[in-house]
Nucleic acid binder design. Structure first.
Length: 954
RNA sequence: GCGGGAGUGGCGGAAUGGCAGACGCGGUAGGUUUAGGUCCUAUUGUCCGAAAGGACGUGGGGGUUCAAGUCCCCCCUCCCGCACCA
């Protein structure tokens, strides 16, 4: 790849080479920085600039998912999205909009910390160095960012506001009636005024301060809970549900994760389940991402139904009630047994000492008594890993607990089972089984010979087992009990059943969620400290705003305590707890100096990315995290009911339920509290594709450097050795990494940018092919040559008007490129520019009326060479704010049209007619053109598609 | 299993139901050059044909239509997500 860079002796002195590109690019990057070319004016504050050419113009906020500055640096896949947003932003700026585009760094978190641990240096040292390296790499690409707005989550100026937002969350509660968060002080006031009953009904004033605090704390959106959490000894920290894969391992590092009952900080994201789900409809996001969020949130609407139980020696006086959750209350007449999760809390109480009379052998699991059977089943279920459980989904297992429940409508006795196909963590951990309308229940009923009663009439021709479709209810009448569903459709039957349950005290309509509260604390060092201290009673107390930021202290040993990855019984230990002098602190929080203990957990890596897009808007504001006027301008709703948010957000699809869900949650809290005017952070989301690469292995399976492999007669050769080819991510270990630095050295940043944008639609993943980059290089050389004489360096541009054909082509291209740019179809936009360039290349001299628009249209993709040519064309200011060319509609319609003429669907001739020729004339000319193909036959039908073609049916 | 997306030349990819393969890579031929490379020109879906031209072609099979890569039905393959969520 170095041959393109090495100037051979006979290369013309003014040819566009990699060396020249390098000189041009660095010079323009310096110019842009010196002149602050890409500074976007704010409406107010230090970044306001009323004299700016775009001050007060229609705004556009373009955002990239900001990077983790990893130690490995960038490969050619990383900047794909950044180049895409840059091309879009540059186009929109030229099209007249005030464009905000900035780049920051997500620098707290595990990877940065792990890299630091590996290299034995402080995470801040390595992270800052990595950020500098990223910045240099990105600068080399000529990205038009407003560098004044760059932030890093590790800056105290930044994380002081992350902590401030945490305090907003902590000091809020969710008012379910108002469907919004409100300040916690308003809750306390309602309790004190008696407007809101306390949990046990006593007057607020009668409660001790500790009791009052407990009640208030139970309402906070950020709270401490003692609950089963995901403990990952291999990482030495707990993890959120979103960070644990389906097979029970850590998303990062792939370590085993165990359920441990630990005290941890949680965020009450479940309070926002409805809005997080419903507001997806307002977003312009890829359907697949919306679907992933819908699935993750997992709202199920149905009912809780109570089934009374009475066992002889269960110890439950008068019998307990088993509360089940179902989405199909309409099928209650088909409920022929109950199933509890093996871990369900009532199982022990329900299980008698001996099998009741008439217990079938199949139900006992071969055990002499129900207690042995239950214990054996639980043991077997607990021993199974999640993976094994999933593998066993076909064969249903379970055991009868030896007790019966009373059907709330029919009064019949139905057996109670435990089975691992019912999950303890979902709904109530208990179901009513309706085999006729549920495939899982049907499968279980087959194994255990349980009755199956159809209560929905299957559609005609249905020959399956369980029927889950819609249809009229059957076998569903108990007039003596006041419930008759027969004939009702599913929806009506559900409503009728819920009404009956509620009226008769047997249940209540209910909604359950798959979404759990967000586990927010991590036992790591490299994160934002909590602005929380504990008093002598152990109560968590928010530090006042003026004590922010709580700076991350230095520690001798920043590495987390990690454990044997399989040691489920290990206990987390926070690195910050080692700094006792930091942990123990004397503060005056209003009632005199007192001793407090600091929270030693840190926030998860997601905290900073939950709101960084807001800080770009007003990065220097010391009084607010963002000035409301600036937020309203850049992100506010455009119309009544509009969600607001960034106008374009580009990033990978892998954050579907992590960052994108958490950020929406925080944004909604800030919205409820009146700090922002938009109720969604990202209006339009675009997932860029992944650039992958081929890797090659020799006969021993060892990867060989991909750049040294050549194709010979369809075989892949590394020297004399044949190697095998595979396709996947770029990585050091596969020896197939290509970096932007390589490409900039060999061809220049502009060529690299054009290549990445032209290789396919931005959203599509594609293989990297270094040898194809030369095509973009040649393209830029042809543009250069169209403007500059390679031998003399003088202009080849003429002021004489272009010929009509060239002028029409220009305007067609202008029109097409504008449409493509608006639609983020850069590959086809570049193809059109190449066509135009190839057309002018053939001309003796390039008309200025073509050269100038060509250079302007090229500018979003190849900004440096475009600026250089623009200057050579006689302009003394940057083209960043030049008007993007506009097509003359009159030149888009041709004088004449050439119609292909089809006979029976095949093109048999062509006819050129005036564009305004009447259809009759087109028809006549067409028939004449294909007269020989018709061989004198009279056409049965002639279809003239204006401007398109003529179709003759013979 | 369920849901989503996608199958077009040797490769990446273009095509409001209207001439399939824009544009680029690669290949072939020629020009420039001492040579190679660069650069330029032409050509490049497959098959038949000397050519003119013709036939066939968008994963497979049916259908709608004057006309289907595009719309409808069935099937196959690949990728992604979820995975007993009641």
């Amino acid at each position: 790849m170095s041959e393109a860079a090495a100037p051979a002796g006979d290369i013309p002195p003014f040819r566009y080479t990699a060396a020249m590109a390098d000189e041009i690019e660095r010079r323009w990057q310096d110019t842009w920085e010196r002149e602050g070319t890409f500074h976007a004016p704010n409406p107010t504050g230090p970044l306001a600039d009323p004299g700016h050419p775009r001050a007060g113009a229609e705004k556009l906020y373009v955002l990239d998912m900001f990077p983790y500055p990893s130690g490995a640096g960038l490969h050619v896949g990383h900047p794909l999205g950044y180049i895409g947003t840059d091309c879009f932003a540059r186009y929109q700026r030229m099209a007249g909009r005030n464009v905000l585009h900035a780049m920051g760094f997500d620098a707290f978190g595990l990877p940065a910390e792990q890299y630091a641990v590996q290299t034995g240096t402080h995470p801040r040292t390595t992270t800052v160095a990595n950020i500098e390296r990223y910045k240099a790499q990105l600068r080399r690409l000529g990205l038009a960012h407003d560098e004044r707005r760059s932030v890093a989550t590790i800056d105290t100026d930044f994380y002081r506001w992350t902590q401030w937002i945490f305090l907003q969350v902590f000091n809020s509660w969710y008012d379910a009636d108002a469907r919004k968060a409100r300040p916690i002080a308003e809750l306390t006031a309602e309790f004190a005024a008696g407007d809101r009953p306390t949990p046990d009904g006593r007057a607020w004033a009668e409660l001790s301060p500790a009791e009052q605090r407990r009640i208030v704390d139970d309402h906070r959106l950020a709270y401490v809970s003692q609950a089963p959490v995901n403990w990952c000894p291999g990482l030495g920290t707990v993890l959120a549900n979103e960070e644990v894969t389906a097979d029970g391992r850590s998303d990062r590092g792939n370590f085993p994760v165990f359920k441990r009952n630990l005290k941890q900080w949680m965020m009450r994201i479940t309070a926002y389940g409805d809005r997080l789900l419903d507001d997806l409809d307002t977003l312009d996001w890829p359907e697949s991402i919306k679907l992933q969020q819908r699935n993750w949130i997992g709202r199920s609407t149905g009912a809780h139904i109570d089934f009374p139980t009475g066992t002889t020696d269960s110890g439950v006086a008068g019998g307990a009630r088993i509360r089940v959750f179902t989405t199909r209350p309409d099928t209650i007449f088909g409920a022929t047994y109950l199933v509890l999760a093996p871990e369900h809390e009532l199982v022990d109480a329900l299980t008698p000492a001996v099998w009741p009379a008439g217990t079938r052998d199949a139900w006992t699991g071969g055990h002499a008594g129900p207690r042995e059977a239950v214990e054996a089943y639980r043991k077997a279920a607990a021993a199974k890993t999640d993976v094994e459980r999933q593998a066993d989904t076909k064969e249903k297992t379970g055991v009868f607990v030896g007790a019966y429940a009373t059907h709330p409508v029919t009064g019949g006795q139905i057996p109670i089972f435990i089975a691992d196909y019912v999950l303890a963590g979902y709904g109530t951990g208990a179901i009513m089984a309706v085999p006729a309308q549920d495939e899982r229940d049907w499968a279980f009923a087959e194994v255990f010979e349980l009755p199956i009663v159809r209560t929905v009439q299957p559609a005609d021709g249905f020959d399956g087992k369980a029927y889950t479709g819609d249809g009229p209810a059957i076998n569903s009448a108990a007039p003596e009990r006041g419930l008759d569903l027969d004939g009702l459709g599913v929806a009506d039957a559900k409503a009728a059943t819920i009404a009956w349950l509620e009226a008769n005290g047997h249940g209540v309509g209910a909604v359950t969620w798959r979404l759990r509260d967000w586990l927010f604390s991590r036992q790591r060092y490299w994160g934002e400290p909590f602005p929380i201290v504990y008093d002598a009673t152990g109560a968590a107390i928010a530090l006042p705003e003026e004590m922010l930021p709580v700076e991350l202290p230095e520690v001798d040993d920043f590495s987390p305590k990690t454990f044997d990855p399989d040691d489920a019984d290990s206990n987390p230990e926070t690195p910050l707890s080692r700094r006792r002098d930091w942990v123990e602190v004397e503060l005056d929080l209003g009632d005199g100096p007192q001793r407090y203990t600091r929270e030693t957990n840190v926030m998860p890596q997601w905290a900073g990315s939950c709101w960084y897009e807001l800080r770009y808007l007003d990065p220097t504001n010391a009084a607010h995290f963002v000035d409301p006027e600036n937020e309203a301008y850049w992100m506010g709703p455009r119309a009544e009911g509009d969600c607001g948010g960034t106008d374009l957000y580009v990033g990978g699809a892998e954050h579907a339920v992590l960052h994108l869900l958490y950020a929406r949650f925080w944004h909604k809290v800030l919205y409820d509290l009146g700090h922002v005017s938009s109720f969604e952070p990202f209006r339009k989301l675009f997932n860029q594709g992944m650039i992958q690469a081929y890797a090659f292995r020799d006969s021993r399976g060892t990867p060989v450097p991909a750049e040294e492999v050549v194709e010979v007669d369809g075989r892949w050769m590394h020297g004399e050795q044949e190697v095998t080819r595979e396709y996947g991510k770029m990585g050091k270990s596969l020896r197939n990494v290509v970096t932007p630095d390589d490409m900039c050295a060999a061809y220049g940043a502009d060529t690299f940018r054009v290549y990445e944008m032209s290789m396919g639609p931005l959203e599509v993943s594609r293989p990297w092919e270094t040898r194809a980059v030369v095509g973009s290089y040649r393209f830029l050389q042809r543009v250069w040559r169209a403007v500059v004489d390679e031998q003399t360096g003088t202009l080849r541009v003429t002021d004489a008007p272009a010929d009509t054909e060239t002028r029409r082509l220009l305007h067609r291209v202008v029109d097409g490129v504008r449409t493509d740019m608006e639609g983020i179809r850069f590959n086809t936009a570049i193809a059109k520019l190449i066509e135009l360039t190839n057309a002018v290349t053939r001309l003796e001299q390039t008309p200025r009326e073509v050269a100038e628009p060509l250079v302007l249209m090229l500018a979003p993709f190849a900004p440096h060479v475009a600026e250089e040519l623009w200057r050579m064309l006689g302009h003394d200011t940057s083209l960043a704010y030049a008007d993007f060319p506009t097509a003359d509609p009159a030149l888009l319609v041709a004088d004449t049209v050439t119609y292909p003429v089809q006979v029976n669907g095949k093109v048999r001739g062509r006819v050129e007619v005036p564009a305004d020729a009447p259809q009759e004339a087109v028809r006549a000319a067409a028939l004449e053109a294909v007269a020989s193909a018709l061989a004198g036959k009279e056409p049965r039908k002639v279809i003239v598609v204006p401007g398109r073609l003529v179709s003759v049916v013979a």
